[in-house]
Each structure stands twice: as C-alpha cells, then as structure tokens.
C-alpha cells in the first residue's frame, strides 16, 4: 500500500518552493546579466571610439586618409562592431566602413554628437552608436556602431546558460526530494500493510514482518508497539458491536 495522500502535499510544496527559487533567481540573473553586459558593451564601444580618436590625430593632421581607413578597418573586425565613421570638424565624412553607401540615417545625424544613440538602419539592423571627439572635437569625431543584435544574442546566450544551469538544479532537486520522500514512505507503507494484516489475523506472522519488527527506527518501534497493542486487545470489543476481532 502506498502512502500517496500523506506525501502529495509535501511533494507539491517542494516543487513550488524550488520553482519559486528558480523563477526569482532567473529573473535576477536576467536583470543583472542584461544590465551589466549592456553596460560593458557600451563601455567597450566607447573605449574603442576613444582609442581611435586618440590615434587619429596625427593621421588626420598628415591628411593620410588611407592610413585612417586602414586603422578603422582593423577595428571593425572586432566582433560586434558593425560600422565606424570619422567626420571632420565641418561634418564631412573622411573615412567609413559602409557598403554600398552611407545610410541616410547617418547622413542626417549630427556629426559632432558624442552621446550614445540607438539607431535602426533599414537593411542593416539595430545599433548603439557612440562618438568620441578627436582633439577635443576641433579635428573631428569618431563614431562607432555596435550591433545590438549581436549584443542581444550574446546576452541571451549568457542568460540562457545560467537559466539552463538553474533548471538542471531544479530537476535534480525535485528528483532527489521525491527519492528522499519515497525513502521515508516505503517503510511507512510496510507498517500500514503490517497493521492491516495483524488486525485481520493477529496470530499470523511472516518473514516480512520480521524485517519490519527488527528495524531500529521509529517504524520498527511503531510495528512492535502495534503488535504489542493488538496482542493485548484481541479480546476487546467495541460496546454494542458483534463479537469479532479487532479492528
């Protein structure tokens, strides 16, 4: 006989508890990873823009635009950076990495702005663009566009890995809980079976009862107590009831 009713609520409770832990941990993880990685990517983009701006001064002053293009071509190979353009102090485009041409959204923007801007460029995707002034802006501005899709993908991957880990722990925890509950339920089931048999025929003892009666835990104590109680009350009758054996 299984002890379903007694442990049903326990299992449900464990499952609900683990679920709440997983849900809250995942939400916290998503928020933390998203916030920190977004901030880090933006910071990296800003650092790259600053690095290019710092190193562009001599090249710009020497009017060596081929070297300037070579410089930004190397940076645009860094994963996540989709475009770089450099404008002069008059807003003229001196070097860029756009193909087949400079998008209208870029042409129409303020070339001297260095504030982070989120852009949606048809055919290219969503970007966060960061600018950095060259020589305090008097020599121009460097603009670096980070692909938000790639950033989002990286963030999703990082979050996914953490959620998968937490989910695996949830499943393992629930399985372990069920196993542990079953471990406790099994001798109780045996005790119940024994109690039913003894009540039906106190004189009948089997080998399985020996195993139960020799246990040195609470189940063994209960079995021995039940046997003792049933042996002393075999002649007891409920008032008004017909003469029969307990229960």
């Amino acid at each position: 006989m299984k002890i379903e009713k007694l442990f049903q609520k326990t299992r449900f409770g464990i499952f609900a508890l683990f679920g709440m832990i997983v849900l809250s941990t995942s939400l916290l993880c998503i928020y933390t990873v998203d916030t920190q990685l977004s901030s880090e990517y933006e910071s990296n983009t800003r650092n790259i823009a600053q690095s290019i701006a710092d190193s562009s001064v001599d090249i710009l002053l020497n009017r060596n635009l081929a070297s300037l293009q070579s410089l930004i071509d190397q940076f645009v190979e860094i994963q996540g950076i989709r475009y770089i353009y450099i404008t002069s102090e008059r807003g003229e485009f001196l070097a860029h990495t756009f193909v087949p041409g400079i998008p209208r959204e870029i042409l129409g923007s303020d070339p001297s702005s260095t504030e982070p801007v989120e852009r949606r460029i048809p055919g290219m995707g969503d970007f966060i663009e960061v600018g950095s002034p060259i020589l305090a802006g008097v020599a121009g501005t460097v603009h670096v566009g980070m692909d938000m899709d790639i950033v989002a993908l990286k963030i999703q991957r990082a979050i996914g890995q953490q959620v998968i880990l937490i989910s695996i722990l949830l499943v393992l925890g629930v399985l372990a809980s069920i196993w542990l509950v079953n471990l406790a339920a099994k001798p109780l089931g045996g005790l119940l079976d024994y109690a039913v048999r003894v009540a039906a025929d106190p004189e009948k003892d089997g080998a399985s009862e020996d195993e139960l009666l020799t246990r040195d835990d609470e189940v063994g104590d209960l079995a021995r107590l039940f046997r003792y109680v049933s042996g002393h009350s075999s002649g007891w009758k409920k008032p008004g009831a017909p003469t029969t054996r307990a229960p």
């Binding site: 910071s43 990296n44 650092n47 690095s51 290019i52 190193s55 090249i59 410089l71 940076f75 860094i78």
Partner: peptide, 21 residues
C-alpha cells in the same frame, strides 16, 4: 577581464598602425 583583453588588443592594433612602440 574581457575589457582588459579588449583594451590590450586595441592598444596593439593602434600601435601597429601608428608605430607607437
């Protein structure tokens, strides 16, 4: 960290381009 790696890589790229030894 990733940031330090990125900075080191970026510094190297710049150094090659600008011969900042």
């Amino acid at each position: 960290t990733r940031r330090s790696l990125l900075r080191r890589g970026a510094a190297g790229l710049l150094a090659i381009c600008c011969s900042n030894r």
